[in-house]
Computed example of a mutant assay.
Amino acid sequence: MTSQRTPSRQARAARSPLLFVLAALACATALGWTYWAFVRTTTGQFADESAWREAGVAAPDTQLPFLRFLDTLPTISAVLAAAAILFVAFGRRRYAAALTAVAVIAASNLTTQILKNLVFDRPDRGVDTLDFNSLPSGHTTLAASAAAAVFIIATPRWRPLAAAAGGGYSVLAGAATFLNLWHRPADVVAALLVVGAWTLVGGLIIMRTGNTWNTWQGFGAHWASSRGWLVLCWVLGLGGLALSAALYLSVQAAGPPPAPGTAGVPLFFWAGLTCIVGVGFALSASVGWLFAAQARTTTEQTRP
């Protein structure tokens, strides 16, 4: 007796869309907390300003090479995103996916500019610092949104690699703005969270409208879909966050210096840098895992 193959009711990508919505809301909540903790409070302003000032002392030799990287960052990001989007649109004829990727880039960068220039302000909390708001970082948003666009339009078997590579590129861009004294650590973290929220929204749309191609054979079927890419992101993400918290708490336990940037050991700097690494890779690991779990596997395509 021959079996009739009929579509399974579970054979749809992003079959639990609420997970994407909740994750996006979590990013938005974390963004709001970052702003409140490091801009609205005295303790947060002191820690963020201290990290920024200590960067000029702890890593003075990094500023020139990172400045060159930052000068070319918009071009690099635009070329990477444009090449991937054009390939998907005209090479694979996935026009909806390409348009959604463009929308994610536009929404992320527009959100950052609106928040930085119109919504968020920087109150005077008695900390000697710049009197204008710089959160979120525009350069970090640009780089991370370009990486996010490549990630969401990639086929599932390439997404674990794209998550790790995109996380590395975003962290490098964010760390560069920090080490070159363009932004404080909280500015970079906020930008990563903005992009994370829009990545989840755009990714949900792409997976639900691109059900036919959002399918894969699971981890390990292809070298780019190895679980190791996400494990690496988890290790760097959770390790960075744990180290950042330990460094920050050690400074508070010993007592912060009398003024920002006057500590003998630049613990605020290292806490800020490891926080950027931790948030960037933790977001990459979380998003990569969610997209993998919600992709359509080959065993879900048909049933007897």
Rank of each mutant, 00 (worst) to 15 (best):
S3F: 14
Q4K: 15
R5D: 06
R5F: 15
Q10Y: 13
A13H: 06
S16T: 13
L18I: 15
F20L: 05
A30F: 14
T34G: 03
A37G: 02
F38L: 01
V39R: 09
T42P: 02
R53H: 11
G56D: 05
P60I: 11
F66A: 12
L70Q: 10
S77L: 04
L80K: 06
A83W: 14
F87E: 09
R93E: 15
R94C: 06
V104N: 02
A107H: 03
S108G: 05
L110D: 08
Q113N: 14
I114M: 03
K116Y: 03
N117M: 04
L118E: 04
V119Q: 02
F120I: 06
F120W: 09
D121S: 12
P123Y: 05
P123R: 02
R125N: 15
R125V: 15
G126W: 12
T129S: 13
N133E: 06
S137V: 03
T140N: 09
T141W: 00
A149W: 01
A149K: 01
V150N: 04
F151P: 00
F151M: 12
I152T: 04
R159W: 04
A163S: 14
G168A: 10
Y169G: 00
S170K: 03
S170H: 07
L172G: 03
A173G: 06
R184A: 08
A190W: 00
L192H: 08
A197Y: 06
G202I: 08
G202W: 05
T212V: 13
N214P: 03
G218S: 09
G220N: 05
G220T: 05
G220Y: 03
A224W: 12
S226Q: 11
R227N: 04
V231T: 11
W234L: 10
G240L: 11
G240C: 13
S244T: 05
G255A: 09
P256W: 09
P256V: 11
A259S: 13
F269S: 07
T274N: 07
G278W: 05
G278D: 11
A285P: 02
A285E: 02
T299S: 14
T302S: 08
